[in-house]
Design a protein around this nucleic acid. Structure first.
Lengths: 209, 209
DNA sequence: GCTAATATGTGATTTTTTTCACGGAACAGC
DNA sequence: GCTGTTCCGTGAAAAAAATCACATATTAGC
């Protein structure tokens, strides 16, 4: 029975997809909801409910065929096509992201970096092309980039996001510790806020739960 | 009326705390739930419900006194004391984290870095002391470190987490794209998984919502 | 001092999400 | 081929979270 996917469900299904990848690499052909649940840290029935949103994929009594599950997830989550991405802001974090090797194996192709400092761009040694910020719109459109990793200083986050939106970007992973406003219907945003995660963690530590 | 704080509520309150900081720096003395909501991207009534978990803090008709709100949050969330933290794994990401300046202003004191490569440690130029991995337990206990940012390669994440737990750490921000198992009652974990966020984003982009 | 606009606090309601419980199916060991 | 175990799919129940609606209070303008 197919249903609309909620964000918590999508999040977990993405983790399941990752697991399928790893299981395949290990040569494992079948997997149960219990095993999947253990691997991604949620109960088995949650996994089953999530997977069932895609329709019947498993075999009653004998678990899931890894390849088949992965294929279903790929289609349902839209991982068929490779997404072209860019990194905006090449400070410490942006540079670290540029050197991250896992993007390719995960279905992403990071094809450009941008920074407002021409000096920095000229002295950088990188495998991928880097451009000055004022070329952002042109490069994004020419290279058909759909997705941006935003790692600029917080004060210029909104202005930079505006340029990204104007360039036709469709998704932003926002590493800046501020909320950015974008037209919700056109552009999706995911926020990663390290300091806030640390604060939440700290609170959980004191509240003891 | 004081209530138990749920994790979504804690997350938002941490953002509100951050906002209070910024408002204070800007010299703003009062703020409304509407303004706070806009700044952190949630509706005003959500903010009010969240803040009310701390008891009555605002003034009916005239909003919140920034200083008072901040003081309440500080107490409720346990931000009175500075948390001592360490960074485990000094690859690209770990190094980037080491250079991040905002920890201090946010109530964290990052006092150590660890890496398994003695060679890397010796050649690193850092302001904070870095140690080989085999000294981890001793240093964590000596320095009374409560919190770890875990940025080691995924295959050694669990083993490293085990050492952290054995060292008496109380919270872990896990940057590795795997789920780590820890004794839940003693140690809190927050996961930051960049690839998974990108995948979720990609799914939202295709699902168009 | 009156009015309109703007505030908070909160019980009630609705929606969302998670958890439970169980029917029916496959499998392994003997 | 029988038996005990494991497993999926799913409607129903429960729990959690978000939203609404409104009583009540303050402020600003005039």
């Amino acid at each position: 029975m197919k249903k609309k996917l909620s964000i918590p469900t999508i999040t977990r299904l993405c983790m399941v997809f990752q697991q399928c990848d790893e299981l395949q690499i290990m040569g494992i052909l079948r997997v149960s909801s219990t095993q999947l649940g253990k691997a991604i840290g949620v109960p088995a029935h949650t996994i089953r409910k999530d997977i069932n949103c895609l329709g019947e994929v498993g075999d009653t009594g004998s678990g899931y065929d890894v390849a088949r599950l992965k294929a279903h997830l790929r289609r349902a989550l839209g991982f068929d096509q490779i997404r072209r991405a860019c990194i905006v802001g090449l400070g410490r974090l942006g540079s670290a992201l540029m050197d991250y090797e896992k993007f390719g194996a995960s279905g992403f192709s990071v094809v450009a970096g941008f920074d407002s400092s021409v000096n920095r761009i000229e002295t950088m040694q990188t495998r991928m092309p880097v451009y000055p910020a004022y070329d952002m719109k042109e490069v994004i459109q020419r290279e058909a980039i759909e997705l941006a990793l935003l790692a600029v200083p917080a004060p210029v986050a909104q202005a930079t996001a505006d340029v990204l939106v104007a360039s036709g970007i469709r998704g932003i992973v926002n590493f800046c510790p501020v909320v950015i406003n974008v037209p919700e219907t056109q552009v999706q945003v995911r926020n990663i806020n390290v300091i806030n995660e640390m604060r939440v963690l700290s609170s959980l530590m004191t509240l003891g739960e």
